[in-house]
Design a protein around this nucleic acid. Structure first.
Length: 433
RNA sequence: GGCGCUAUCGUCUAGUGGCCCAGGACGCAUCCCUCUCACGGAUGAAACACGGGUUCGAUUCCCGUUAGCGCUACCA
């Protein structure tokens, strides 16, 4: 049975690159009906922090990457195991002691080769490999040593990890060989790159999964996007549900070249998921975000919020975007865009038009799009204007922006009590030339 | 520097010797829809790094060059 693992070290948040590694492991396990383990590599005493582990776990759960071990494995709890193994190597004379550290002797001139599942045959000469520290002076095992022992103990069949570990592989194989342990399959997946084609890091922008969650990206969109970085199901398909990704996932289809993290495409994909998401699912997310801004007071009618969401869902890329665009509807702080004000409000005759439209709207027997539109068109005809000459200033006066949904829908949703005062206020102040 | 990995439109990629004067998607441009912006629809510009082989025929196989990246810790 296929057994894979994701082994983060709790020295930082979950990076999108690591998340993608976790995802590929998970996808492979689910496709094969195998097992996916989570192991904590907390052997760096100084940098490991419990709060980092909590964040990593929260991120994995948010992405939906569930693991099969019921209790988490911590390397810090297996110290005796590593020490015993190192001691054994010491007894056999293949390792030596330097102070408190135990170091593995590398015999030069041997060829170490392995058949990488994505790269094919790879070779190294031990001439280029230095003696390897097994146990550090502080008594903790090093990565390469603990990793080999653990992968072997837990029966890991496929080591799926980033390309940056290719040069660790011969060091680990040397250890497998001298301890007489079966060697797993190695699957080195291409790195995720920043805009300058160096590996994605903080200086390129947001790299933690939590940041994307907070910005209003959807986990399904994130998983879909990440799965397509370095892997493709072949053909033209791009937006696929997770079941489909699992079904199609195949290590043989993993590419060899680094993939740039394209935020623009992620955003597009997120907007696609947002649009297709049923309102029952989208509404709670919108409410949560609104609430985080302190804009959701308890008296708001849920049906009304749903109406606003429906109106904006085709023009947002993230949930945060939704908040940004609808701020004027949920608060009285209208985010006036200076350019829009200059172009649409500070123009001759606009104040008068807005005042007249306000009067017409005030007299409307019923507040609905049809009535709002009829009033607009009637007034435009009366004044000898195009409807657009009334529509544009009104949109800016009410929402502060020159862009957005159909004006008549906006006004209906904004309601008479917001619309009329805003039109009057704009007419008396903002329109001043 | 040494060692290793990689090389198709700006980006993610399809392509495994002829189906490719290279297909899709994002982005970009134009048009349609239209009160603006989106959505949706249509069209367009845009790539096989270079040089040698192998072959009747190379994006696809081999070699080299160049370039990029990664590793080179008692970090993982």
């Amino acid at each position: 049975m296929v057994k894979v693992r994701f082994a983060p070290s709790p020295t930082g948040y979950l990076h999108v690159g690591s998340a993608r590694t976790a995802l590929f492991n998970w996808l492979f396990a689910r496709h094969e009906g195998g097992q996916f383990f989570l192991r904590v590599e907390d052997t760096d005493l100084i940098r490991s922090k419990p709060e980092f582990l909590e964040e990593i776990i929260a991120s994995l759960k948010w992405l939906g990457l569930n693991w099969d071990n019921t209790t988490l494995e911590y390397q810090s709890k297996r110290l005796e195991k590593y020490r015993a193994k190192a001691e054994e190597l010491l007894q056999r004379g293949v390792a030596y002691k330097d102070g408190e550290a135990i170091i593995f002797k590398v015999t030069p001139g041997q060829i170490i080769s392995f058949d990488d599942v994505v790269h094919g045959p790879v070779q190294f000469n031990t001439l280029d490999i230095k003696d390897q520290v097994l146990i550090k002076s502080d008594g903790m095992p090093t990565y390469n040593f603990a990793c080999v022992i653990d992968d072997s103990d837990f029966g890991i069949t496929h080591v799926i990890r980033g390309d940056d570990h290719i040069s660790n592989t011969p060091k680990q194989i040397l250890l497998y060989q001298t301890m007489n342990l079966p060697i797993p399959k190695f699957v080195h997946i291409p790195l995720i790159l920043g805009t300058d084609r160096s590996r994605l890091s903080k200086r390129h922008g947001a790299t933690s999964i939590q940041e994307y969650k907070n910005a209003g990206y959807l986990p399904d969109a994130m998983v879909n996007f990440l799965s397509l970085l370095g892997w493709s199901p072949g053909g033209d398909r791009e937006i696929l549900p997770i079941e489909e990704i699992i079904k199609e996932f195949d290590l043989k289809r993993i590419g060899k070249t680094g993939a740039m993290f394209d935020l623009t495409k992620l955003s597009w994909m997120n907007s696609q998921y947002l649009q297709k998401m049923p309102i029952e699912q989208l509404l709670p997310l919108a409410k949560e975000a609104l609430n985080a801004h302190g804009w959701l007071n308890g008296t708001l009618d849920p049906a009304w919020v749903a109406q606003v969401v429906e109106l904006y869902k085709t023009r947002i890329e993230t949930v945060e975007d939704f908040c940004k665009q609808t701020r004027g509807l949920f608060t009285d702080e209208i985010p006036f865009d200076p350019e829009a004000v200059a172009l649409r409000l500070k123009q001759p005759g606009v104040a008068e038009r807005l005042t007249k439209y306000a009067a017409k709207l005030e007299a409307l027997p019923k507040w609905d799009t049809a009535g709002i539109e009829a009033a607009c068109r009637a007034l435009a005809t009366e004044l000898g204007l195009k409807a657009a000459d009334l529509i544009h200033p009104t949109r800016v006066a009410v929402t502060g922006r020159s862009v957005g949904p159909s004006l008549f829908h906006i006004l209906e949703v904004a309601g008479r009590d917001r619309t009329i005062p805003r039109l009057k206020s704009a007419a008396s102040t903002l329109c001043a030339l």
